[in-house]
């Protein structure tokens, strides 16, 4: 088998939600001399990208994504110890939450799942989260490669996102972290107005955008 064959096998186990097969394929790839970073970037992540596209096209649904994520997670248990000290490994830490005053969590959960499945370390602060708690968590993790992913379904709670960015600036943290907001009322114009980095149209798009801005 060529290296590409091993990587394709990794990709396919993710797409087919084959958890045991993914573990097996990961061990085979390592035995064949493929590095952990290559296995993740050119095998597993390619599979997750396909899964994301299928989800966006409504060809597969949340449980199927979760099975793929579980396969990815099983592979990462094997690969993570090999990544220690590799600065290029991992996409970073994603702190996800729903803005204070808002308890709508379906979109938030989907985005958190997709980010986790795409290799982000996750801290999920849950719903109705005050900005102070968000800032506290950012300070706690200072020094890490970080992205803040906030959600708001209502125009009233969306206004709190502006304060989030202001607070990050006041605390001198804005340059240490990427900031991404989502939810029905959030538009590109709003993102530009409040000085955040990005928004996305749905959960699959959110993981793509997050990967892009964390490059």
């Amino acid at each position: 088998m060529s290296n590409q064959d091993y990587l394709d096998k990794l990709r396919d186990t993710i797409v087919n939600q084959n958890i045991n097969g993914c573990v097996e394929a990961t061990n085979e790839a390592l035995a064949a001399g493929i590095g952990a970073v290559e296995a993740i970037e050119n095998g597993l992540s390619v599979g997750m990208k396909i899964v994301g596209d299928k989800f966006e096209a409504a060809e597969i649904y949340l449980p199927h994504i979760m099975m793929s994520a579980k396969a990815m997670s099983a592979a990462m248990e094997i690969l993570s110890p090999l990544l220690v000290g590799d600065e290029n490994a991992g996409h970073g830490l994603a702190i996800t939450y729903v803005q204070e005053g808002d308890i709508h969590d379906i979109g938030h959960r989907l985005v958190t799942t997709m980010l986790g499945a795409n290799g982000f370390e996750i801290i999920d602060l849950g719903v109705d989260v005050p900005n102070e708690k968000v800032i506290e968590e950012v300070i706690k993790n200072k020094g890490k490669k970080m992205i803040l992913v906030g959600s708001a379904l209502m125009t009233t709670s969306m206004l709190g996102q502006k304060d989030t960015v202001e607070l990050l600036k006041e605390e001198g943290l804005r340059d240490d972290i990427k900031v991404m907001f989502g939810g029905a009322p959030v538009s590109d114009a709003w993102i530009a107005e409040i000085g955040a980095d990005a928004t996305a149209e749905n959960a699959a798009d959110a993981s793509r955008v997050a990967l892009e801005i964390m490059k």
Binding site: A58, I60, Y61, L62, P63, H64, I106
Partner: peptide
Amino acid sequence: ELTLGLHGD
């Protein structure tokens, strides 16, 4: 417009 598949089946 789309029925979300939280269960799927």
